[in-house]
Design a protein around this nucleic acid. Structure first.
Length: 572
RNA sequence: GCGCCCGUAGCUCAGUGGAUAGAGCGCCAGGUUGCGGACCUGGAGGUCGUGGGUUCGAGUCCCGCCGGGCGCGCCA
């Protein structure tokens, strides 16, 4: 069979192994026994030891038991069919062998490696983006901190985690929308307004008020006209001032996030959710599903029916049966799905983990697939200075803002820091240590590799040497001429991994594989740089070929950094 | 008490049931008459918290225990 050359090499190998297995299966299945129609996913991995080849599969060991055959026998049978495939000139496979206890090891041809590299040069903008097997329209909601004060460093992880996930999902072929949900009418907003009014009028800040410097700035910036209008309105003055202050804080948050490289497509306010009737609609749908009951004057959702620990109140017994926060969230679920998303993703701090079951329960009762409502929980970050944890409270005003943190350590370093750790991993962030080590941050190692290549390309161009990126046939010819060389082969193979890295990151919803890959690619390039001189006037053909190769490496480094929202400098 | 997350090198962290458990930083010893030394090469450093179990194979899955974090509202 001829694999689809637009797929990642790994996917092509998977197709070939899958076909080979189907042929081998007939030989291994006892006559008359058709019960063994086992659909085993073909697992393909990059072996840790490169001497085993480019890809390895453990399928023979997985199938040994159901087929009651020795793993080595199965491996040999599959390998025999793969060898047949490898005779096809269009096949990317150059060789296959079997190793105990039953690994099938596959080596990719230089021609296929060259073809992948040439594709990078022909269409650099597309390199790193893959076609999803099942493309989805995904809504990712993150940060969603209430606009009662500027973002502090505790919000950093959610912001970066969400942004990184969106970038990776987009690159993996999904359509992604980024959403921020905020409360703009609750008692917190009223308290913020009361604090601003108190400062403006020279009174003491009330018991439940806010005390940060930003509250004083709000009081100072509050226009007289807004204050006057609020004082003559029907409602208490702190409400109108609270809404004004809250919107001002919200737009400040948006500006901070944009400075971090975190853009949001949708800003959704909780009050409009109520005004537009989504909360009432959601309650009615739960009622229609027969999943609500009344107790002591409150309306309760029977979430235990769908696996929650206890049932949850959605309409209070007090305040004229006002909806709870949870009820608003259910309304939000209905509203979001009405926009046509296939999947809703929420980035939450792990302190919200108790909330997962009830929201999924609500989704199920509403008739949505609970597996299409996905929560990613980020572990807590402890910020440490001078060996002590920094306590943070928005209400008392004791906190370090996100803007202050970024001023200290830089956006690229901060992004790398969070991208290189699993969401579930607790982090101790020592600010002094981060500042001290910032020049040793691996992100600069990767950026340096990119800048170094840019420098070489500039130098070559000045000497009249420019790789013919658009001429794919010529590039292929050049690359195949140098790929027998070990440094060239290693760099080209490393370049070809990017699509797999994107697929893995999207599927696992984790980005630390991207930082690891970027570091490995930079290391491979630096080794190449040491072993293979690029610009050599006495060898123009080889120089052009090597320039083409490092140009592809540069595009790939930029692609990996772009996935992380990190700049790829031409010089540094 | 119940539930969820975590425990891997001195430090910060990777590790999708597979081959000899890795990376960065730190430490030690080296390297450039040449394209950017923010680079490269080598080394020391591990009872994978602990005790059982499942498996051809366990850092990975299951159970117990120890240690740390978080949650268990008609708050948001």
């Amino acid at each position: 069979m001829t694999p689809d050359a637009t797929l990642s090499l790994r996917s092509q190998v998977r197709q070939i192994l899958s076909a080979a297995w189907q042929q081998a299966e007939a030989e291994l299945t006892p006559a008359g026994d058709s019960s063994l129609a086992i659909s085993t996913p073909i697992m393909i991995e990059r072996p840790a030891d490169p001497s085993f080849g480019d890809f390895a599969s453990n399928i023979a060991m997985k199938l040994a038991k159901p087929y009651r055959r020795a793993p080595m026998d199965i491996a040999k049978a599959v390998a025999a069919h793969v060898v047949t495939t490898a005779m096809d000139p269009a096949s990317p496979i150059a060789g296959v062998d079997v190793a105990p206890p039953g690994f099938i090891n596959v080596r990719i041809s230089d021609a296929a490696i060259a073809a992948t590299t040439a594709r990078v040069l022909r269409d650099p903008a597309a390199w790193g983006s893959v076609t999803a097997e099942h493309p989805e329209h995904i809504n990712v909601e993150f940060v969603s901190a209430n606009p009662t004060g500027p973002l502090h460093i505790g919000n950093a992880r959610g912001a970066f985690t969400g942004d990184l996930l969106c970038r990776v999902l987009t690159a993996a072929g999904h359509k992604v929308e980024r959403e921020y949900y905020f409360n703009d009418f609750g008692s917190q907003v009223k308290n913020l307004g009361a604090s601003v009014v108190a400062i403006r009028e020279g009174c003491d800040i009330p018991e439940d008020g806010y005390h940060g410097d930003y509250v004083y700035e709000l009081a100072r910036d509050l226009p007289e006209s807004v204050l006057a209008a609020a004082q003559t309105a029907d409602e208490p003055v702190e409400w109108a001032i609270g809404r004004w202050a809250s919107e001002r804080v919200r737009s400040g948050i948006e500006a901070s996030l944009e400075r971090l490289g975190c853009h949001f497509d949708v800003w959704r306010s909780e009050s409009t959710l109520h005004h537009d009737g989504w909360v009432g609609k959601a309650v009615e749908r739960l009622r229609a599903a027969g999943d609500v009951y009344e107790e002591d004057g409150a309306v309760v959702f029977r979430s235990t029916k769908y696996g929650d620990d206890k049932d949850r109140v959605i309409l209070r017994s007090t305040d004229d049966n006002a909806p709870t926060y949870f009820a608003a969230d259910i309304g939000y679920l209905v509203e979001k799905f009405s926009r046509g998303y296939d999947r809703l993703v929420f980035i939450w701090g792990e302190d919200h983990h108790g909330y997962v079951a009830r929201v999924k329960a609500a989704a199920q009762s509403l008739g949505f697939d609970p597996d299409h409502v996905q929560m990613i929980l980020t572990a807590w970050v402890r910020f440490i200075r001078d060996g002590k944890e920094i306590a943070m409270s928005k209400r008392t005003g004791e906190f370090i803002t996100l803007d202050e943190l970024l001023a200290e350590i830089g956006v690229d370093a901060a992004r790398w820091f969070f991208a290189s750790r699993a969401a579930s991993s607790g982090i101790d962030f020592d600010i002094e240590l981060a500042k001290k080590q910032s020049s040793d941050n691996p992100v600069y190692y990767v950026q340096y590799a990119h800048a170094r290549i840019a420098s070489i390309l500039r130098k070559a161009a000045a000497a009249g040497m420019v790789p013919p990126a658009a001429d794919e046939a010529r590039v292929l010819e050049l690359l195949e001429g140098i790929l027998p060389g070990v440094p060239e082969a290693q760099l080209a193979r490393q370049i070809g991994r990017l699509p797999e890295v994107v697929e893995d990151a999207a599927e696992s919803r984790e980005t630390h594989g991207v930082t690891a890959y970027a570091t490995e690619l930079a290391t491979t390039f630096h080794a190449f740089y040491r072993d293979a001189r690029v610009i050599d006037e006495t060898e123009p053909e080889r120089s052009i070929a090597r320039l083409a190769l490092i140009a592809a490496a540069k595009t790939t480094l930029a692609g990996a950094l772009g996935l992380l929202g990190i700049s790829a400098p031409e010089s540094m």
